[in-house]
Write a protein that binds this DNA or RNA. Structure first.
Lengths: 211, 211
DNA sequence: CGCGGGCGGAAACGCCCGTTTCAATCATTT
DNA sequence: AAATGATTGAAACGGGCGTTTCCGCCCGCG
């Protein structure tokens, strides 16, 4: 087993264990046993459990990040004013295309995000911060009648719907009594896009309406 | 300090610690030190860390659950066919009304949910299962032109937007560059209701539209 | 008055965690 | 073939965890 294969095995097993039981419940002994490598190999190749986790998360997030940027830039090159659908799909589709809806990668991302280990803060900010501003800007341009703060709120809700779908894929099947199939990537994607686009185009919320 | 006060102190501190650092990172020693009670008091009054956590979660969820049911039943008594807005507000508003958007309770719920400790599975299913079916049914009635499976998907997206908002309240302020204020409960509630209602009313997703 | 049970306090138990150590082995270069 | 640096293997380390034990306090009922 070459060093490269060892690294790969550790990354793969870590990803699937994070998906199954989460970050803090995954122990190095579980991980190395399942990967068939020595306990010390993790620290030799990655330094620590935290750094391993960052590597796992980066392997999931980086291609999505890159695909989103590429699609946004292709849009900007093609037209001065991309449509709402273009922008929403440029943000939503790379996740589905690269990882599907019910893969270890999506569950891992959802679970580790959910635990919010403190060392992931900067990582997430550095990865998501820049791209988010550019999408919000295009979103605002596609929805000139929507207030700027509403744009950000709706973008936030969109991210929430996505994250929840990825994190609790099994739940929707159970709660819908089998009517929804989270493994049908195309179906989930189109359901989500339709919901989000309509939400984005909502009329301004009523100012008052207490109770 | 009476036994009742001790119980109360433990519950309060557990809730705020779960909100701050999550379930698994909260240790009994932290908890009892901050609550000013003895380490053994938790096991004396609650039995175990798991049972304490269930008590904390139940204290948060139960009143929301009850308020939702009451409002749904009030609707059913008042009219044969509640409007979409009535149903959505009956589901969404109790959370905001009882806990606000940026309280320890909402963050606790979001974080503990995110960690998905296995012993919470049955608890959540038993609490959310029954009520969810009744809301989905009313939703279907208010949206006769929407397919049944779409109803469930959209309900799921709605729950995701809510959960994400509660769990990452701090994030939206940061990512929006201060334009959004997650502590403004009324604003958040109305933004969410507007977004969700529009999403619920979306046209059927296109059948194909691959790429 | 005494005495029994609800409760608190301090210490220990057994376990498993992430990490480190250090010698053995392998692959590659000279 | 010898040597050197990269990688692996086995064992141990120190520490923190949830939980348990056990003793002393104290209050109210007889």
């Amino acid at each position: 087993m070459t060093a490269q294969e060892t690294r790969q095995a550790i990354l793969d097993v870590a990803e699937s264990l994070f998906a199954e039981v989460g970050f803090s419940a995954t122990t190095m002994r579980m991980l190395t046993a399942r990967a068939g490598v020595n306990l010390a190999a993790v620290h030799y190749h990655f330094g620590s459990k935290e750094e391993l986790t960052l590597a796992v998360m980066d392997r999931i997030v980086e291609p999505v990040h890159r695909a989103r940027l590429e699609r946004l830039e292709a849009l900007e090159r093609a037209t001065a004013a991309p449509s709402l659908e273009d922008v929403v799909r440029a943000y939503v589709e790379p996740v589905f295309q690269l990882h599907g809806t019910d893969s270890a990668a999506t569950r891992t991302f959802g679970r580790v995000m959910g635990e919010q280990p403190p060392f992931l803060r900067d990582f997430l900010a550095s990865r998501f911060g820049p791209i988010l501003g550019r999408f919000a800007q295009q979103l605002q341009r596609a929805l000139p009648e929507v207030e700027e703060s509403s744009c950000y709120w709706r973008f936030h809700f969109c991210a929430g719907a996505m994250a929840h779908t990825m994190q609790h894929a099994a739940l929707v099947r159970q709660l819908s009594g089998g009517r929804c199939d989270p493994a049908d990537t195309r179906e989930v994607r189109e359901q989500l896009v339709a919901f989000v686009m309509a939400g984005m185009r909502a009329e301004a919320p009523t100012a008052g309406a207490s109770r």
